[in-house]
Design a protein around this nucleic acid. Structure first.
Lengths: 224, 224
DNA sequence: GGCGGTTTTAACGCTTCCTTGATGGTTGCG
DNA sequence: CGCAACCATCAAGGAAGCGTTAAAACCGCC
């Protein structure tokens, strides 16, 4: 559940870190240079970044500064350089911790825990309103006429996918594979059952839905 | 004005640190052993604590844990011991950083800046009230009908995560990994046990909780 | 080494949710 | 008009999740 990005140009170390981190319950993505690291950091939300300063393409400190431009995730720097100027430079560039190679894995993990303990997920306000109901994606909450609407986990997952893509047509296969997993791409019956329940809970007039629309033969669409 | 407490039994080092820190604009108080350190920490609000683990009276890790009982200020540990077990122990006991002696003063200052950069000035409202109980996040205290409620460390951690995110749904995985660590993401049984205990201590009517709510299959939510 | 407090484990009834199948309605096309 | 494909709705059985309790394991401390 905790997403960690590991950036290092040494494939062996990368592999070792990935295995260790995954064994400790982290979700790991990796990058081998600065360019792909920055790309990866923009792709998915990260809880923490482990960054080697000795990258082939871009200077590590530079990567760090770029990173800080759009991410506030804690950064733990790995480096082969022991000099205190390097440490000061990295820390002042936005790093939260600095370990020199070689390092003990248990120490790395402990420092990682210490960093994560402090970090608060800065989730942005994401409220989507319609004239019938309101969906607060951050709080995981749906209200209608001021009252809470109770949704089951599956109902919520479906609604979330639809609401995160307003006006966009989501195919049945997309919905099924995101909510139930890729193996369920043919169980369109599930969708019928759950869309009916969602409409009963959210639509003022179930017979003619205005926000949860069906595109016959293709999929569903959410209109704000 | 940034207040720093320096704890070390070596008067020379203490003096050097005081002078250096004051030269960089910090307000410095000092202590030479664990007892006086804990006392000093209760006296005035601190932005950061520099703690030497080799104290004459109390074991350094113990001081850390005591400290964490009432303060959430970042702690930078100094130690003569290089062993990774020592580091892991200190970091897991609540330290935010760990440097071994001898160290460079400029590195210490840089790490200090990195820690302070993260720390939110605790100016915001740290007291959360409901009609049944009151939680003081800064003081680590919970009161109900004017009387203190005794919470175990684990109970407090859970309550803290929930209360710091009012109205927000916290998934079971988030709670478990925050309180027990990322490896415990499947032990949902723990949550059931502890939520029951928290409700027994805090909710007027355990059968129909109004502030510690369950979202079946997903997680829990605190409502003020 | 025993003691008080805390955490972990296990077991139980109970509630909620998911799945499944059946039924009827709608749409489009030959 | 009749048929086929698709959709909406409902209800029921079984699976999964929840609250609760109590006992066992664990821990720091006297």
């Amino acid at each position: 559940m905790t997403a960690v990005l590991v950036v290092d140009d040494d494939p062996h170390l990368l592999r070792a870190l990935r295995i260790t981190l995954q064994a400790h319950g982290y979700t790991v993505t990796t990058a081998v240079d600065g360019t792909s690291a920055l790309l990866a950091a923009t792709q998915n939300p990260l809880s923490l970044i482990i960054l080697d300063l000795g990258l082939p393409d871009i200077d590590g400190t530079r990567v760090l500064k770029e990173l800080r431009g759009f991410s506030s995730a804690p950064v733990l720097v790995l480096s082969a350089r022991h000099g205190s100027e390097d440490k000061v430079e990295a820390l002042d560039a936005g790093a939260d911790d600095y370990i020199t190679k070689p390092f003990g894995l248990d120490e790395l993990l402990a420092r990682l825990r210490a960093l994560l303990r402090r970090s608060v997920e800065p989730e942005r306000e994401t409220v989507v309103r319609t004239d019938a109901f309101t969906v607060d994606l951050a709080k995981h909450r749906v209200t209608r006429d001021g009252a809470d609407v109770r949704l089951t986990p599956t109902e919520w997952k479906i609604l979330e996918v639809l609401v995160r893509n307003p006006e966009k047509l989501i195919t049945q296969q997309q919905l099924l594979s995101r909510v139930w997993g890729p193996a369920y791409a043919k169980e369109t019956n599930y969708l019928r059952v759950y869309m009916a329940q969602l409409r009963r809970k959210l639509e003022p007039d179930t017979a003619s839905p205005r926000h949860l629309l069906t595109e016959a033969g293709i999929g569903y669409r959410f209109m704000p």
